[in-house]
Amino acid sequence: MTWFVDDTWIVIIGALTAIACALPGCFLVLRQMSMMGDAISHAVLPGLAIAFLVTGERASFTMFIGAAVVGVLTAVFTQWISSLGKVDRGASMGIVFTTLFALGLLLIVQAADHVDLDPGCVLYGAIEMTTLDVAWEFQLGETWIEVPRAAMVLGSVALFNLIIVVAFFKELKISAFDPELATTQGINANFMHYLLMTQVAVTTVAAFEVVGSIIVIAMLVTPAATAHLLTDRLGLMLLLSAIIGALAAGLGHLLAIVIPPLIGFDGTTTSGMMAVTTGLLFVLAWLFAPRYGWISRLVSRKDVKSPFSGPLPSD
């Protein structure tokens, strides 16, 4: 196995994607609306396509804004449809995002006749190719460092999400735990909801364009759910989810290089492998988590009468 500078960059880009996703992802998981990330990441497609058709270029700022707006609209439409009654939240989400996604596909196929916009590439992404697009070079000692554009974009998004989570930590926490209490405390829970949806949309679009959507869907939910198994503190959960996501990115790329030759294949997609690794890490946590893991529950059930872990409540 040989490790190139490009491999380091791929891991960095993957890790930045993971961190950018994990922060809003924790709140999605805690609000029990994990599928919203999935929905938004699909629904941004028509936004990308329309902005692309209007401006005629990929990777423009217009494209970014257009897609982010459609992403937030997904949340708005879902809310509207379910507030009519008769259609539950899951169903309205399904209606909105499949419709928007299909519309996006139609538009992309139309656009692809004229220009190079490959639906497959948009979906699965090509994190391996991101290092070719260098945005910034600088000299460090003897060596030139070539920073890929993807690293800049995802680094900015990760930073944006970090600032939001730090600045609105209390407000995000209370709105996720008890939106009604938040409202009585003068914190507009609706505003916080759409702030979170905006974060998810911006993250999804940025990642969509540079690394594809599979990795985003994996990184939004799985590291957050893994972290939730490991801790009872929200701050620590946020930190752990970022670390777990970054770890999955590193391990995923390593496995993508090492495993295929062992079983006689040429190579596999790094994005896919990173996503699979998040799942593997989740399984490990599910089995071995100190308090909520399967094994520790099995053990504690023997010596505690309560079906719940931890000491028996007493009055």
Binding site: K173, F177, E180, L181, Q185, L234, M237
Partner: peptide, 29 residues
């Protein structure tokens, strides 16, 4: 001037916060 005690089922008790955290939320305003 107004305090509110919602129904217990209105929240997810698996949320990663301690009892003290929840009480502190009453002071966020």
């Amino acid at each position: 001037m107004v305090g509110y005690v919602p129904q217990r089922e209105s929240v997810d008790w698996d949320f990663p916060v301690s009892a003290l955290d929840v009480v502190t939320m009453g002071l966020y305003r």
